[in-house]
Structures are given as structure tokens and as C-alpha cells.
């Protein structure tokens, strides 16, 4: 298990490229959630992407260039809160591997130690306590594989949801199974990916939950795309937006 620091006064916020482009509101909502914890949120405008697309495609050299450029943007010893388990896993876990044996390995490791996924940060660092102001709702959650297995934070998102009194959480069959996104996997192996996302959407819909949440936009891009294609009413929203809306908004 990770050892968590005391709640800081400032954090860096890493929005991720997918949120930047596809769901900026989730980024704004996450910032508000952090500010509600009394933390000053620093958004470094030069941030781009964690480099995962290159890394998972087999381009370590290019991934490393991107990684180095991102690391350089966050020089102060403040936590870097990432709005995705997958990008968090890249920055907390895989950056170490990319720089293993390099002269700046120790510096990189120190950076990686500062990287936290949003829900992990809210629960284990902020000890956030949420008060539900929403109506009764039935929710199903999808946790990304990276959040679950690289960041070990699959429980923190649940812990936040469980604090909401009017929210009933349904668990889908094969809850821990991958949705089939996997970045370039989805286009390199479209048939396998399709069979995975079709199973995932079927299991999610079978819960008859009215709302779907996830803390990872990669998975949401995949799952929402499939749900829309299938003409299903269910759509996933980012957990940050869901939490903020339930607790009274801005």
C-alpha cells in the first residue's frame, strides 16, 4: 500500500488530453471538488498528454520525450492530481520504467511519487466527506483497469459514491473486466475490442441503473461510443462531474 502525505495547501492539476478535448467540464468540476477541500489548484497551461499513446504503441523513445516534457512542468514539491487512473498509472508507474537506469532516474521517481489519481487523492489525502443533496438515483460504476491494477484505487471511487446517501450502487456482472479500450488496441484489434465493449455495455445495462459513472475518460469514450451506437439511453459521465452535481454544484 501507498503511504499518503498530509493534505497540502496546493496541488498541480493534470487534466489529461481526453478530458481537455472531450469533456472539459469534468476538468472544471474536478478543480472545484479540490478547491472545496480548501486546496489551491494550479493548472499548468503547458500540459499536453502523458505520452501513453506512444508508449502503448511501442514507441518508448517518443513516450520518454513527452514524459520528460511533462515532468519538467511540475517542479514544485506539490502533489500532481490526475483526472484518470490510466494517465495516473502512466505517470506514477510507467514513467519509472521508462527512465530506469537513466542518470535522472531518482528525479523521475520523486516525481512519480507525487502523482495521485483524483479519487485516491480525495479519499486518502483529503479524507473528503461528501453530503448528498441529490434525489434518489441508481448508479453503476465502471473502474478502469489502470485505476484498479496499476494505481490500486478501485476502492476509492466506490468509497466516494458510498458517501452519497441517496445513491444506490449496482454492481455489474464481470465488474473487474476490461471494457476493451486499451488505447490503440481498440483500432488494432477492432473485433476483439468490439466483443469486449459489447459485453461491457450489456452488463452495465443489465443492472438497470439510470446513471453510469467512471473516473476515466478513455473507458468512457469507448463505452459511451458503444452505448450511443446501440441506441441505448444510458450514458457515462465522469465521476468528478457526478460528485459535484450531487453535492450541490459550484
Amino acid at each position: 500500500m501507498r503511504i499518503y502525505p498530509a493534505k497540502p495547501s496546493k496541488v498541480y492539476f493534470y487534466a489529461t488530453c481526453l478530458v481537455d478535448m472531450f469533456d472539459p467540464q469534468a476538468g472544471l468540476d474536478a478543480i472545484t471538488l479540490l478547491e472545496q477541500q480548501g486546496i489551491e489548484v494550479i493548472f499548468v497551461e503547458k500540459q499536453t498528454c502523458c505520452g501513453q499513446p506512444a508508449y502503448s504503441s511501442g514507441y518508448d523513445k517518443q513516450a520518454k520525450q513527452v514524459a520528460q516534457s511533462q515532468i519538467d512542468l511540475f517542479p514544485e514539491n506539490w502533489p500532481v492530481v490526475v483526472l484518470s487512473g490510466s494517465c495516473g498509472g502512466m505517470m506514477h508507474h510507467h514513467y519509472r520504467r521508462l527512465f530506469k537506469g537513466d542518470s535522472n532516474q531518482a528525479m523521475v521517481d520523486t516525481f512519480c511519487d507525487r502523482v495521485f489519481e483524483l479519487t485516491e487523492f480525495l479519499v486518502n489525502v483529503c479524507r473528503a466527506s461528501l453530503i448528498d443533496q441529490g434525489d434518489k438515483s441508481v448508479v453503476v460504476m465502471h473502474t478502469s483497469c489502470a485505476a484498479r491494477r496499476e494505481m490500486n484505487v478501485h476502492l476509492t471511487a466506490t468509497q466516494l459514491l458510498e458517501q452519497l446517501d441517496n445513491v444506490e450502487i449496482r454492481e455489474q456482472a464481470y465488474e473487474s473486466e476490461c471494457c476493451g479500450f486499451g488505447g490503440t488496441f481498440a483500432v488494432r484489434h477492432p473485433d476483439i475490442s468490439q466483443s469486449m465493449v459489447e459485453d461491457k455495455t450489456q452488463h452495465l445495462c443489465a443492472t438497470e441503473a439510470t446513471e453510469l459513472v467512471s473516473a476515466d475518460w478513455g473507458c468512457l469514450l469507448n463505452i459511451n461510443g458503444a452505448l450511443e451506437y446501440q441506441n441505448k439511453a444510458l450514458r457515462g459521465v465522469h465521476l468528478a462531474s457526478f460528485l459535484l452535481a450531487r453535492t450541490g454544484g459550484q
Partner: peptide, 14 residues
């Protein structure tokens, strides 16, 4: 979008 849209709608940027 080829492989992506064989079972998904195309993603739309905000």
C-alpha cells in the same frame, strides 16, 4: 472512423 466506428459512434470533441 473505420475500426472505431464498427461498433461505436464517432467521438465528438467539446
Amino acid at each position: 472512423l473505420g475500426a472505431w466506428t464498427q461498433c461505436r459512434s464517432a467521438p465528438k470533441p467539446a
